[in-house]
Amino acid sequence: MSRSALVARLAILGLLVAFLVAPQAFAPVFAPLNEYGAPAIYDQGDLLELALSHLWLVLIAAAASTVVAVALGIFVTRPAGAQFLPLSRTLVNVGQTFPPVAVLAVAVPLVGFGQAPTLIALFAYGLLPIFENTIAGLESCPPPVLEAADGLGMNAWQRLRQVELPLAVPLIMEGVRLSLVINVGTATIGSTVAARGLGEVIIAGLLSNNAAFVLQGGLVTALMAILLYDGMRLLEQRYLPTSRN
């Protein structure tokens, strides 16, 4: 990332934090959107708390999907799991045709309203990109490299740990980032089943015909998604050697 791009991201982050901490300061910006003196800033709850709850929901779900998806991805690419590979591929394709609302709607009867169905939907929805990219990453290791690892006397575990996973990490992380961005957006829908998050702000706006609320909820969510994506990439480039470029 270039220096100017980094500065731009930091500025956005600053703006976002400022808005969440002192939203009333931005009232003049949003006021023109509303008529008849409707509140310009969301007033039915603490924006910062909602944003943090939103972020927390997404991160917990993403952590769980990453662990499960990477483990499954490793399993189906080992000889022991080879019989599951063709089906896994198909499931990834089929799974992507499930709309998030459907996943959410089906989770409600199982676990009731609140955070739980949202967590389940985010977890299930977040699995797909990570699983897909884990398989792709592990399978894209060049055969000569694997042969060399075998030739050097590595056992299967050492080969996975020292060769395959490090080479697959960039693609896996790409999947995690994709999954995060999708879920930051999907989590807003969770508010229709009473999960605490920025969806509340948007839905409150929809219900009271308050465009300022809708815009606030949408902007904060979108900025969070962008910052998460870029922040992750920055961390990867800093700490994961195979992710550079």
């Binding site: 959107l33 961005v181 930051v184 957006g185 999907t186 807003t188 829908i189 920025l198 969806g199 948007i202 839905i203 706006g205 929809l206 015909n209 465009a211 809708v214 815009l215 909820g217 949408g218 902007l219 969510t221 979108a222 998604a225 962008i226 994506y229």
Partner: peptide, 17 residues
């Protein structure tokens, strides 16, 4: 890419006004 990150309910809502 930025458009894609705007959550769908928000974009629906933003366009309403």
């Amino acid at each position: 890419n930025v458009v894609q990150t705007i959550p769908s309910i928000a974009l629906f809502g933003i366009l309403m006004a």
